[in-house]
Write a protein that binds this DNA or RNA. Structure first.
Lengths: 167, 167
DNA sequence: GCGGAATAGATGAGCCTTCAACTAGAGTTC
DNA sequence: GAACTCTAGTTGAAGGCTCATCTATTCCGC
C-alpha cells in the first residue's frame, strides 16, 4: 500500500537530481517482496529458535560443517558459505564452542588458519533441529506456492544471485 | 548447490518421524531465494547506512511517519507498520530522538499512548536519504529483472503476505 | 633468507534486538 | 466506584553484529 520510497513522487517525472523514482507498480512489487522476505525470515528464525534453541544463523553454520568430509572447514570458507563476515563467524564459533557443538583446531597446511570442527554433540543437535526447520520451511513457503510460483522463486533468486553474489 | 536442509536426504523417502524433507529441486529453489534475500537486504542496508548514516530500519520509521497527516503516529501503529516489536520501536525512537529527528508527544485521546512525531530535521534527513535508497533498489533489484520477473516477484510476495501477515 | 605486503583470524567497544519485567492509564463488572 | 483485567509503552540485561584494530603467519621479490 504505502511504500518506503513513496517520498519520491512529490516531484514526479523529472527531478532536480534525476533520481529514478519508483512508480506505483514498482512500489507495490518492492513492498510485497520486502515485507514477505522480512516476515518469512523472521518467522523461520523464531520458530527454529524457540523449538530448538538454535538460531538460523547457527543452524547454517552447523549444516555447512555437517556437509563436509570430516565435518570440518576453514573459518574463511565457512564464513563465505554462510554469507557471514569473518568477525561474525569468529564470534559465533566461539559461542558454539561454549555449547560444545564445535571445536577449533589449527589448520595443518597453514599456520594462520583454523579449522572449525563439528562435534558429535553438535551433529546430534543439528539432527534434532533439521526436521523442525524443514517443516517450517514447508509450512510457510512451499505449502503456500504453486509449482509455477516455486519455479519463479528459483528463477528470481538465481537471477539476483548472479548480480549480488556468489561472492 | 548445497542446501541448509540437505541433512535431510540421508534417509530418503519415508522417515521415522515422517518429515517432509525437501527434494533437490526444492532445495535449489529455497537456497536461491534465501541467499538472494539475505544478500539483497544486506546490500541495501549497507549502502544506505554508509551513504547516509541511516539504517534501513530507521529509514522505514521515518518514511512511515512522513506519510501520515501531521507526520505523527501512535507508537503501536508505527511498530506494526514497520514490522517491528514494540520494544524495538521504543528503543529505536529513543535513538532517533537523540538525533533530533523524532519527538515523542503524549496522545490526547489516550493517556497511555504516545505519538511519535517527525521533526523538520528528521524530514530533511529523509529527503536527503531517499534518492540514495531508491537508486540502490533500482540498481540491485529492478535493473536486474525483466518486467515478467518483476510481476512474478510481486505475485510471490503477495501470496506469501496473505499467509504470513499483515498481522 | 630478509623485509615488506598480504592474508587468516581474534578481539573489544558500541550499537541493536530480544525477552521478561514493570508502570500507568482504560475498560469492565458488579 | 472498587477491584480486575487488559492495553500502551518503557526499561534493563543479555546476547548478537559491525567496525576498527591487532597479532601471527605466509607469500613475494630480491
Amino acid at each position: 500500500m504505502t511504500a518506503d520510497v513513496s517520498l519520491a513522487p512529490r516531484d514526479p517525472g523529472s527531478d532536480a537530481e534525476g533520481t529514478r523514482w519508483l512508480d506505483a507498480e514498482e512500489q507495490q512489487a518492492w513492498r510485497a517482496w520486502l515485507y514477505s522476505a522480512q516476515l518469512l525470515l523472521d518467522r523461520l528464525d523464531r520458530e527454529l529458535t524457540h523449538a530448538t534453541g538454535i538460531s538460523h544463523a547457527y543452524y547454517e553454520i552447523l549444516v555447512a560443517l555437517s556437509e563436509t568430509e570430516g565435518r570440518m572447514m576453514r573459518m574463511s570458507e565457512l564464513a563465505d558459505r554462510c554469507l557471514s563476515s569473518r568477525s561474525r563467524l569468529s564470534h559465533a564459533v566461539s559461542r558454539l564452542e561454549e555449547r560444545g557443538w564445535v571445536r577449533r583446531q589449527v589448520c595443518p597446511d597453514d599456520g594462520r588458519g583454523q579449522l572449525a570442527v563439528l562435534t558429535d554433540d553438535g551433529f546430534a543437535a543439528l539432527e534434532a533441529a533439521a526436521p523442525v526447520h524443514v517443516e517450517s520451511v514447508r509450512t510457510h513457503l512451499f505449502d503456500q506456492l504453486s509449482p509455477e510460483q516455486v519455479a519463479a522463486m528459483r528463477d528470481l533468486g538465481e537471477t539476483l544471485l548472479r548480480h549480488l553474489g556468489p561472492r
